[in-house]
Nucleic acid binder design. Structure first.
Lengths: 133, 133
DNA sequence: CTGGATCCCAAGCGATACTG
DNA sequence: CAGTATCGCTTGGGATCCAG
């Protein structure tokens, strides 16, 4: 998905692995998941998201929101008031995904230490001299 | 993770959302999941992976494999025979993740049509003229 | 308040060629 | 067989400024 056919034919493997990539692409963005999580607690406004996520740029918030909306995962409600007001929420489909993401997070929590140790061990094993350049 | 502090301080939100990103980064690569899936069916050789995934470059296979190994998700066994032989497998931790990924895939399967229709509708609604440039 | 437009750097990834 | 090295295109994403 990240690249539109580099000229010469590029077989896309079997349909099975394709589906896997599709779902991940939908959530692969740097901010998608955090937005999904933040919006799962009910309707939330643009600025609330912006401040709640802290570190996200206005640009990326907008872009990610648009993509999620495009995929039917996020709802966007505009109140044509004098200072514009927009509320975002999750669609039922996105709520299902949210539950799934929680399982992923669980895995991360459980194995966070393991992975960190694995990394440290691997790095120590391979390039100990590059650490203090 | 994809960028090392753009100069001015960048707060990293609360630890909660950080963990989410961490796990996703571990799987976000274009090929990580397919490798994880392929390797979950028992020890598999480099060339088998290369041909089984079809579309992956040798370079990316190596890189992704290294990263997964570094994170303690993939095991690498070298047989110092005359033609080198290397077998890859999953660690128990990775096997847990594989189960989780299956759930994600399930979600994708169920809602694949929904998302596709949502996209089409959104695109038709917003820029119908840019479709046949 | 909620974005859109532009600029630009850095990371991701592919192509290709070389090697123990 | 199983990589490593180099190159360059493409994309992601931050900064900044403009606008309804």
């Amino acid at each position: 998905m990240s690249q539109r056919n580099a000229g010469t034919s590029v077989q896309v493997a079997d349909p099975d692995t394709c589906r896997v990539r599709e779902v991940l692409d939908r959530v692969a963005g740097k901010w998608s998941v955090q937005i999904l999580v933040a919006a799962s607690r009910g309707p939330i406004r643009f600025t609330e998201l912006e401040r709640g996520i802290e570190g996200i740029s206005r640009r990326m918030l907008t872009l990610t929101l648009r993509n999620l909306e495009r995929d039917g995962l996020v709802t966007r409600t505009v109140y044509p008031t004098v200072p514009p007001k927009v509320e975002y929420g999750l669609t039922p489909v996105a709520l299902e995904l949210h539950e799934t993401l929680r399982r992923l997070t669980d895995w991360a929590e459980r194995n966070r230490g393991y992975v960190a140790r694995a990394r440290a061990a691997y790095d120590a094993e391979h390039q100990p001299e590059l650490l203090d350049a």
